[in-house]
């Protein structure tokens, strides 16, 4: 398996705070890889090191076959970054932004214009292409921001929390675009705090917790780690009343249902209860993996 990103023993300290404490990652070529973690887990620092913005204190990181510390220029030729805050020029129009990025990527003026027109069409920005970006909505900005990273079809694309702050529709649009890119062979490395985003988009997921990879694998593999199914109790309106994780055995299930029985008999006023069994979600995985670190996960939000 050829790797697009190969990280070993990466460490980074800011002052006395250890942000990365020996990070190992392996991202196969052409896959979508999600680095999942709460705020402050070290996601952005990881991206900053992999994109040559920050030098690591120790460890190695090979991106697209080049060492980020020894040959940052070589890495820069092969990557694109769409960071957390939109890197768009608000005074310029959408097209001007794209042409500028094309020129900075070594395209001739003509080639840059042609590429800009192509991307404007592909990202559904035709109506706004000649308007200043200052007038764009959040979703349009994000699309343009992503388009700016695609001026050249580089092999590895970094997206730092690409859908934070977007509404549902914009988020799903962006997911579709990212999926298409991966299908065309681009390796996409993204960070996210949204479990659903990782679940829907990523081939592999790594959970980052306090500077270390706490778990890594496909969504299914991670879910399997939590073990058994979860028994849910809902009221007549379908609102979740109780959920009990089980070890997956018949005995475990029976015990869980018995417990629910007692609870619903004892708890007056719960009518028409429905019991269902579901596979564990990434939420369960996340809580199981990072348990003991609850204090550091208040910002964790679930995507709708």
């Amino acid at each position: 398996m050829e790797l697009a990103i190969d990280v070993r023993g990466l460490r980074k300290q800011f002052g006395r705070t250890e942000v990365l404490a020996g990070l190992d990652l392996a991202v196969p070529k052409g896959s979508v890889f999600a680095l999942l973690g709460p705020n402050g887990a070290g996601k952005t620092t990881t991206i900053n090191i992999l994109t040559t913005l920050v030098a690591p204190d120790a460890g190695t990181a090979i991106v697209a076959g080049c060492d980020v510390a020894r040959a940052p220029g070589e890495v820069q030729q092969r990557i694109a970054l769409t960071g957390q805050s939109a890197a768009v020029d608000e005074v310029l129009t959408g097209t001007e932004n794209l042409v500028m990025m094309g020129r900075l990527s070594g395209l001739t003026r003509r080639a840059a214009k042609a590429r800009a027109a192509e991307l404007v069409h592909r990202f559904d920005l035709e109506a706004a292409a000649d308007r200043r970006v200052g007038t764009y909505s959040g979703g349009m900005r994000r699309r343009l921001d992503l388009a700016l990273s695609l001026v050249v079809d580089v092999p590895v694309l970094f997206l730092d929390e690409p859908t934070t702050g977007l509404d549902t529709r914009s988020r799903q649009e962006l997911w579709a675009v990212i999926r298409t890119l991966a299908d065309a062979g681009t390796t996409v490395f993204l960070t996210t705090q949204y479990l659903e985003e990782a679940d829907r988009l990523a081939d592999r997921i790594a959970v980052l917790d306090r500077g270390r990879i706490a778990a890594e694998g496909t969504a299914d593999e991670l879910k399997a780690r939590v073990g058994g199914d979860v028994v849910e109790l809902r009221d007549a309106d379908g609102v979740l009343v109780r959920e009990i994780p089980t070890d997956g055995s018949v005995h475990g299930l029976r015990a869980a249902i018995d417990e629910l029985d007692r609870a619903s008999v004892g708890g007056a006023g719960v009518d028409g209860v429905q019991v269902s069994i579901r596979r564990p979600s990434l939420d369960d995985v996340f809580l199981a993996i990072t348990s003991g670190a609850e204090a550091s996960t208040p910002e964790l939000v679930e995507a709708k």
């Binding site: 030729q77 092969r78 990527s105 050249v152 580089v154």
Partner: peptide, 9 residues
């Protein structure tokens, strides 16, 4: 195919 490179300016 995603194999293009940015030349150094």
């Amino acid at each position: 195919p995603a194999s293009a490179r940015r030349p150094r300016l």
